[in-house]
């Protein structure tokens, strides 16, 4: 049985904001299936009582003081923007959350 279906890949692509093509869906579904079957091997390891490692260095409590540092200028901030207007980043209409 496949580890991942074409529909699941389509759903994941939507979640990831990737407008994948039908051909890509076909290809990725097959490739991801191979990859997943292989990486699923982590499940063979008995690790119930093993704590997970999220950070490889055992550091804790790294903080900065609440002291301002220089910001970018508005021009610098917007320098890479695909579109900007009156000091703000311009984006197309956002899908309405309320309707």
């Amino acid at each position: 049985m496949a580890a991942i279906s074409r529909e699941e890949v389509a759903h994941l692509a939507r979640l990831s904001r990737l407008a994948v093509t039908e051909q890509e869906l076909d290809r990725f579904a097959g490739q991801l299936d191979v990859i997943l079957q292989s990486v699923a091997r982590v499940g063979e390891v008995a690790a119930e009582d093993i704590p997970p490692t999220s950070h490889s260095v055992p550091l804790t409590n790294v903080y900065r003081d609440d002291v301002p540092t220089p910001s970018l200028t508005q021009d610098e901030a917007l320098s890479g923007a695909p579109d900007a207007f009156e000091g703000r980043f311009r984006v197309p209409r956002i899908l309405d959350e309320e309707d």
């Binding site: 990486v39 982590v42 499940g43 390891v45 690790a47 093993i50 704590p51 997970p52 490692t53 999220s54 490889s56």
Partner: peptide, 10 residues
């Protein structure tokens, strides 16, 4: 599970 395996590798 991968993070637990990471612990074991360490």
């Amino acid at each position: 599970q991968a993070q637990k395996v990471r612990t074991l590798i360490t």
